[in-house]
């Protein structure tokens, strides 16, 4: 009889990062951003983490896979995708009263992880909205478990973990033991599409709604990251468009212009 291996995947809800830039409105006075008509999605890096978790579950029937999301206001239908692709249960921790930064989020997830139980925790390497990349590694520190960052592949054999970790010029293959936390990089690949049958099945899987009161958190740290300004990047430039009778002439004209203006230097 083999034991159940509990895998926890942390998923954050973010506005769809692939939405056109023009749909985001920046309000500098209130330091807020609104994304008109942009649907919330699961952070793409967390989706990659979920994909690796689902592959582990496929390779190992003893895996029990839980997804956990924390946020002020969560879209259940969006996060249910985790169940549709293979998670066994979903935990939604909602609390509009906390304005969390990364460290606060890590504390909340740590309390949730302790309550749910875990052998392996996966999280995306960073969130597509804040682009910070602190929560996963901080969570490991709070739980006092070893962590490896930027995985693209994970294998599990009993309680032995094998991780392929992305480095600038290739990858490192690491071996370690559970419990552990792994942050996942986009090189792991995108999350599979759920099929219709599994979307329906997802509705019958357990979804637990918690607030902070359901967790034994103790005292949360104060908010340490303060937003002082929000603005649109100034990227507009005046573009000189090179005209030509044909694409070939345009290309020739562009080359001549770039050399003439000293943008390209062919002497060196």
């Amino acid at each position: 009889m083999s034991e159940t291996i509990r895998i926890l995947v942390c998923i954050k809800q973010v506005p769809d990062p692939e939405a056109p830039a023009s749909s985001f409105r920046i309000h500098s006075e209130t330091k807020t951003i609104t994304a008109e008509g942009v649907p919330p999605v699961i952070n793409p890096y967390d989706e990659s983490a979920l994909e690796l978790a689902v592959r582990l579950k496929e390779a190992n029937p003893d895996v029990r896979l839980s997804a956990v999301a924390f946020g002020a206001k969560l879209a259940r239908a969006v996060l249910m995708k985790s169940l549709a692709v293979g998670a066994d249960e979903l935990y939604l921790i909602e609390d509009p009263s906390v304005e969390a930064d990364g460290m606060i989020t890590a504390h909340i997830l740590a309390a949730a992880a302790r309550k749910i139980g875990f052998d392996l925790i996966l999280a995306g390497r960073q969130a597509a909205d804040t682009n910070a990349g602190g929560v996963g590694l901080a969570l490991a520190g709070l739980l006092d478990i070893p962590a490896v960052s930027w995985a693209r592949k994970i294998e599990l054999e009993e309680k032995l973990l094998r991780v392929e970790r992305v480095v600038p010029e290739g990858c490192e293959i690491l071996a370690g033991t559970l419990p552990a936390l792994v942050t996942v990089s986009h090189e792991a690949g995108a999350l599979r599409m759920p099929n219709i049958i599994n979307v329906r099945k997802a509705k019958t899987k357990p979804t637990h709604s918690w607030t902070l009161a359901d967790l034994e958190i103790g005292k949360l740290p104060g908010r340490s990251v303060e937003l002082t300004r929000l603005e649109a990047p100034k990227r507009e430039r005046h573009c000189q468009v090179i005209e030509g009778e044909s694409p070939a002439e345009t290309g020739a004209g562009l080359s001549r212009k770039l050399v003439q203006d000293g943008v390209l230097n062919l002497r060196s």
Partner: peptide
Amino acid sequence: YGGVALATYSLN
């Protein structure tokens, strides 16, 4: 937000 906005933060 993927480069759509520039945020300035301070740390307390």
